[in-house]
Simulated assay, not measured.
Amino acid sequence: MKVVVTRKLPNEIIDLFSNVQVVVWDKEDEPMPRERLLLEIEDADGLLTNLSDAIDKELLERATKLKVISTMAVGFDNIDVEEATKRGIAIGHTPGVLTEATADLTFSLLLASARRLVEGVELIREDKWASWSPFLLTGQQVYGATIGIIGMGRIGLSVARRAKGFSMNVLYHNRSRHSEAEREVSATYCSLDELLERSDFIVLLAPSTPDTYRMIGKEQFAKMKKTAVFINTSRGTNVDEAELYEALVNQEIYAAGLDVFENEPITSKHPLLKLKNVTAVPHIGSASIQTRMEMAKLAVENVLLGLAAQPLKTQVPSQG
């Protein structure tokens, strides 16, 4: 059998495949080119992919032997799940293992944005620190503030646990009540509008669905406090970036911390990067060494189970 792996992975991960022909793209910082992927997929039995690959109808029509798709990610909006289901292709993803790393990064962005850490680093690097000053780079206080979490899933609860360490008041909005969050961290369920109006820090952790597309836009930013810090570690498509830019420029909100963007990768020409009150990182929410290795191992395990026509360990529900 043949498995296509679209990104370079450590040898110890590739070695987990046994008695399988493995085709691995070996460029460290770029995905397998579309043309090469379309060619390799024609006789492939398995595919180990990630969110930068478009697994669409065109590709699936060529993949006449494909039995399993395994993405090294929680989200699978880059995969045409309905089309894959029609063709009897199992789809695996990697939820759970990246929860704590993503929560760490989310709270790191919150702290960095609130306390203007990047501005401070740049001030020193550019030799602009003249002396100590009473109000030099003063920011927003985190301890004792109110955090509003939009999307109280595994990551949301882990962020809330970190917030409680800072004695923060936790609000949340979700499709349904989350009894564990209410019990464990005294989280208060509220409407989206109430969350936006009351929160000092707003953390977006909603999944990418048609219902959440640009769910945070002009109307939502207008409801936030002028001192609010907005954090997005979910999906870039959940935010109207043009309206976020306007809200920041017009001082409708205080700052933003962003790990994700609507079209990735972005460049230095992106409008949001021109603003000092934006802390931006390149989609590294789960990027601890331990977590990425666990994700890769789980992705391989799902491929091997799919090749053996067995249920995947973490399988995406079929559609259609």
Rank of each mutant, 00 (worst) to 15 (best):
L123D: 07
L123N: 05
I124Y: 05
I124W: 05
E126Q: 14
W129D: 08
A130W: 09
A130K: 15
A130P: 02
A130F: 08
P134K: 11
F135K: 14
L136I: 13
L137T: 07
G139Y: 11
Q140Y: 12
G144D: 11
G144F: 09
G144A: 08
T146S: 11
T146W: 07
I147K: 03
G148S: 00
I149T: 02
I150R: 07
G151D: 05
G151K: 00
M152N: 03
G153T: 01
G153A: 05
R154A: 06
I155T: 00
L157I: 00
S158N: 09
V159P: 02
A160L: 03
A160E: 06
R161T: 01
A163I: 06
A163V: 06
F166P: 11
M168R: 13
L171N: 06
L171H: 07
Y172D: 11
Y172K: 05
Y172W: 07
Y172T: 05
H173D: 02
N174R: 02
R177Q: 13
H178V: 09
H178A: 09
S179H: 08
S179E: 09
S179R: 08
E180D: 10
E180C: 01
E182K: 10
R183L: 08
R183F: 04
R183D: 08
E184S: 14
E184P: 06
E184I: 09
E184M: 09
S186H: 12
T188Q: 14
Y189N: 08
S191K: 10
